[in-house]
Amino acid sequence: MGKAIVAIGLPESGKTTFLAALWHLLTNKKVLARLSLEKLTAEEATYLRAIATRWAQAKKQERTFHSGNKTVKLSLKSDRGAVFDLTFPDIAGEAFSQMWEMRECATSVADALRATGVLLFIHVDKIKPPGWIADDTALAESLGHADANAHADAVADAPTKALANSPDEGQADEIVQWKPESSPTQVQLVDMLRCLQMQPFDIGPRKLAVVLSAWDKVENDDVSPELFLELHLPLLHQYLTHGLSDGWTHRTFGVSAQGAEYDDSNGAPSPEADRMRDMEVPSQRIKVVVEGSTSHDLTEPVNWLLE
Rank of each mutant, 00 (worst) to 15 (best):
S256H: 02
P269K: 01
G292E: 05
H242K: 09
V255S: 03
V289I: 14
M279T: 01
M279G: 04
T294R: 13
V289R: 10
Q238D: 15
R251P: 01
H242S: 09
I286M: 03
E261G: 07
N266A: 14
S245K: 15
G259D: 06
R277I: 02
S295E: 02
P269I: 01
S295P: 02
W248N: 05
L235W: 02
P282R: 04
E272R: 13
D278K: 08
R285V: 00
T241V: 10
V281W: 07
G292V: 11
R275W: 14
A260Q: 05
T294A: 15
A268P: 06
S283H: 03
V288K: 06
D264K: 10
T249E: 15
T249K: 12
V255K: 08
A273H: 08
L244Y: 06
R277G: 03
M276Q: 14
P234L: 12
Q258V: 15
E291Y: 04
L235I: 00
P234M: 14
T294H: 10
E280M: 05
G267T: 08
D264G: 10
D297Q: 12
E291D: 15
T252Q: 01
A260S: 11
Q258A: 15
E272H: 11
Q238A: 13
V255A: 01
S270V: 00
S245R: 13
D274W: 06
R277T: 00
D264N: 15
A257V: 08
S283L: 07
S270R: 07
N266P: 02
K287H: 13
N266C: 05
D278S: 12
P234T: 11
D297C: 14
R285C: 04
V281D: 10
Y239L: 05
G292T: 04
L240G: 06
G259M: 06
Y262P: 02
M279I: 03
E261H: 11
M279S: 07
Q258T: 14
S295G: 03
K287W: 11
Q258R: 15
G267D: 08
P234I: 12
D297I: 12
D246L: 10
L236N: 00
Q238C: 06
R285I: 06
A260V: 03
R285P: 00
E261Q: 13
H237M: 10
G247T: 01
L236I: 01
S245C: 07
A273V: 04
D263Q: 05
Q258W: 07
G267R: 02
S256N: 00
L240T: 00
Y262W: 10
D246W: 05
M276C: 11
R285M: 03
H242T: 09
V288H: 09
Q258D: 05
Q284C: 07
P282H: 04
A260N: 11
E272P: 03
R277E: 03
R285D: 00
D264S: 13
T241W: 12
D264E: 12
T252R: 01
H242Q: 11
I286D: 06
H250C: 13
G254Q: 04
